[in-house]
Design a protein around this nucleic acid. Structure first.
Lengths: 233, 233
DNA sequence: AATACTTAGTGTAAATTTAACACTAAGTTC
DNA sequence: GAACTTAGTGTTAAATTTACACTAAGTATT
């Protein structure tokens, strides 16, 4: 079998885009940017970057996240290549897309507010340039699957979180309501949660404080080694 | 946010490879080819093709399958982009890989025997050139997941098949043994199988003939519309 | 200090699904 | 007709899932 490239075949560029998920306690959100420069100046796009000829798309995606959030330590996972002809009017561009999750906190939110980025609720995503809406849809399907099989939700929550927060997160990711008692039972049975002795008042209005839990990473690592599957149907 | 390509960025080529699965009743196999021409002349590779500047990788993958098998009607699904730097010594190449399933039959098997392709058992795959082993591993994970959620197995079986054949196929895809009684019950409960009034003798040695079943595509389509999920854990 | 208010947190029972397990049935060959 | 080979079948226990409504604990108001 012959696979021969000619000089004209080397005329494609690589870009990478990242669907960055954050959860503010109420809503699951993704980060979008406003495009500067033609084509599509002013349009909304996913955070994106050119991948130069000697760069690895994953490294570029990680660097992109570092530029945006100040940290490169957020988990990311490759989504797919989006490589249809004419997706970019500048020339043939293959987009190697990733998605990542991060823990929203006040500082990060404030920094981003002053930047060219903004958070939009996943149920309220505006039209994006290129085929970025397709990439977002693809990433949501992936997140839905991941959240069912791996306790990936923890990477979106602060170190300590309430049962209601994590349930709300799962409801956002799965797009349906879950029963409070069944959810708690299932999560506690997994033994991936450690109870702390901390409590918070969740909002200004009067109410009972919630117990805070944290994720047992050590336990998770030992379980994954044994081929553990965290299932939430 | 600025995403500007310069002239030097357009110096990448696209290739596509296809992991083509076939099932002969006993073993799950994939098709590999022998590479002609440098680099890696004589090495084993996945069926692959250059994607020219104005072509869609999916179209090229479909055409590749048509060239190999004589038919373009096999289901394929995109796997991912494999885009690490230096995966191809000829230059920067992004491989947009697919996997497909086909029904092995005598004619097809004979034609392929006389060609540059050969079937190898999935548990017995030789070292492949480039990062094609990585692509194969990725496709096996995908097939394992798919077989659990969608009755994708049917696309690997002949029109009419025995319970033992489909169970063997599931065992190959999942990599573990399944209980005969539980497997049959589960499959029949899904109501995706129609019993035919045909029987076959599975091998030369004396034994009782097996009943033949076929896949109820109409039922499947009506179920998928309602968001049906065929689950085999 | 009592009351109203708000959200946190808890248990049980029925239905369904999964898992484990061994024998009989039907045809072929000798 | 006896021996052989693979096809095909049911039951029971355990685990999981689902549905469902009230009490607990604190805050704010009077």
């Amino acid at each position: 079998m012959r696979v021969n490239f000619s000089k004209e075949d080397f005329n494609v560029a690589i870009a990478t885009s990242v669907v960055l998920y954050g959860f503010d306690g109420d809503d699951l959100k993704i980060l979008i940017a406003e495009k500067a420069g033609e084509p599509f100046a002013g349009a909304h796009i996913l955070p994106s970057s050119v991948v130069h000829i000697n760069e690895d798309p994953e490294d570029v995606a990680i660097e992109l996240m570092r530029r945006i959030t100040g940290s490169a330590d957020w988990p990311i996972e490759i989504l797919n290549a989006f490589a249809e002809v004419y997706r970019n009017p500048e020339g043939r561009v293959v987009n190697v897309a990733y998605y990542g999750t991060l823990q929203l906190n006040e500082t990060l939110s404030q920094d981003l507010l002053r930047s060219e980025y903004k958070w939009v609720k996943v149920n309220d995503i505006p039209p994006l340039a290129f085929d970025h809406n397709k990439i977002v849809d693809y990433s949501r399907e992936r997140l839905k699957r991941r959240v069912k099989r791996r306790p990936i939700g923890f990477s979106l929550l602060p170190k300590e979180f309430t049962m209601n927060q994590i349930q709300r997160l799962y409801e956002c990711a799965l797009g349906r309501d879950l029963d409070k008692r069944n959810f708690r039972r299932k999560l506690l049975k997994s033994e991936l949660l450690l109870e702390t002795d901390h409590f918070v008042r969740s909002s200004a209005k009067a109410r009972r404080p919630s117990a805070l839990y944290k994720f047992d990473e050590k336990k998770y690592r030992s379980l994954t080694l044994r081929g553990y599957d965290f299932v939430y149907q």
